[in-house]
Design a protein around this nucleic acid. Structure first.
Lengths: 141, 141
DNA sequence: TTTAAATAAGATTAGCGCATCTGAAAATGA
DNA sequence: TCATTTTCAGATGCGCTAATCTTATTTAAA
């Protein structure tokens, strides 16, 4: 469903939403806590930094932090940035040019589900997920 | 969402459901009509044959045919056979052991969507899709 | 000013699904 | 029996994402 890259990115972002927003969090620390390869995580967070979802700071005491409040970051944004395929729009049968006007046989059945998934992703914020982590003791590892 | 293998398999099965059930359909003919590499399609249909969804016959006039009525084959069965990942059960954050009792932060939001997708796949038959192809002129290529 | 800590960026390697190729086996028909 | 058609099965090559490695750059603190 989601690539490893996206999954790691989501976990890292939830972790950041659950951390102190006023300080930069070291990527190496995060990679240890989340059990993600440091170099790979660096690459992923770079992409999120380039796309303005994170702010980075180099040097000692450096790291990354969220660019806006966790309430204002949806997991939709993260997925769009990290996923190479257009998962919220692509045809379930992979038929080129499949759309409402020229649908594949599965189009009508798939459309509402696709929209529902997109809606859920758009309306789920990092803050919401971080709360769950905090309050209900859910896990990222 | 679905691998190429699964997508090709689904298209081929819909094509078969839309063909004469009483005769074997040549894989090479199908590969031409569906614009799928012959060798690759052969591999996919072999898997479906091994899993009893198709019956094959070698030699001249050979090919494959559905093992039961199109009404009785759901696309769920096809996906389960061809997809390597357990897409109807896996955690959206890829966290090992994530389940109702030990959920990840996204578990509650994802669960109903996952179940809905599974239900749609389980209740969509090849016959239904073949009808659409026939009646509404939808396309597989 | 120097050293160490940290991200940035590019190059390289590994693994896996995708796709192809080749030969074997089975069935038909002449 | 023999040639042809077809699926079956195993091996091989390709390409992309995943993962690693290396070097450069920035910054803080001693």
């Amino acid at each position: 469903m989601l690539s490893n890259t996206t999954v790691y990115g989501l976990r890292a972002m939830i972790h950041l939403a659950n951390s102190n927003q006023d300080q930069y969090i070291s990527i190496s620390k995060m990679s240890e806590e989340l059990k993600i390869s440091f170099h790979f995580l660096t690459k992923i967070l770079q992409k999120l930094t380039q796309n303005k979802l994170l702010v980075s700071y180099r040097g000692p005491k450096g790291g990354v932090r969220l660019s806006k409040k966790p309430e204002d970051i949806s997991i939709y944004e993260i997925v769009i940035i990290l996923e190479t395929r257009p998962m919220f729009t692509e045809c379930i049968l992979g038929i080129p040019g499949c759309e409402d006007d020229a649908p594949c046989p599965l189009h009508e059945e798939w459309r509402p589900l696709r929209l529902q998934i997109e809606h859920q992703f758009r309306t789920t914020s990092l803050a919401h997920l971080a709360d769950k982590l905090e309050i209900f003791g859910k896990r990222l590892v």
